[in-house]
Amino acid sequence: MRVRQFRFSDMALGLISLALVAFILALLSAAGASAEHWTANRQIVSTLGLTDLCIVTEARYTRHLSQADGHAAFQDHPMALEHFPSGAILSPPPHLRTHAPLDR
C-alpha cells in the first residue's frame, strides 16, 4: 500500500478552503436572510408614531436622538458637562449642526 506523503500545500489549501467555505456560508446566509419582521416593525413605528430606534436607553437625548436639541446633553444644571458614555459615540442630529431654517 502506498502511503500518501504529507504535503505543506495540502495543509495550506485545506485551511484556505475552510476559510472560503465559512466566507461563502456567510454570504449565502446574508442573501437568504429574511426581513419579514421589518414590515411588522414598521407598522409598529407608524401606528405608535415612533421617531427613534431603541439602541441606547441610558440618556433621554441618546434614546430619542432625533427629538433632542443641541443643548439637551448639557441641560442638567448650569455648566453641566455631557457625561453619558453613549453621548460620546452618537453625534448630534445633522439638522442641528447645519442650523437649518427650521432649527430652534
Binding site: 430606534l53 436622538l65 453625534s91 442630529p93 445633522p94 439638522h95 437649518a100 427650521l102 432649527d103 430652534r104
Partner: peptide, 15 residues
C-alpha cells in the same frame, strides 16, 4: 420647533 421625518432619517444615516 418642528422635526421632520427626513431629518429623523438623516439623523440615523449620520449617526
Amino acid at each position: 420647533r418642528p422635526v421632520l421625518r427626513e431629518e429623523i432619517l438623516r439623523t440615523y444615516e449620520a449617526v
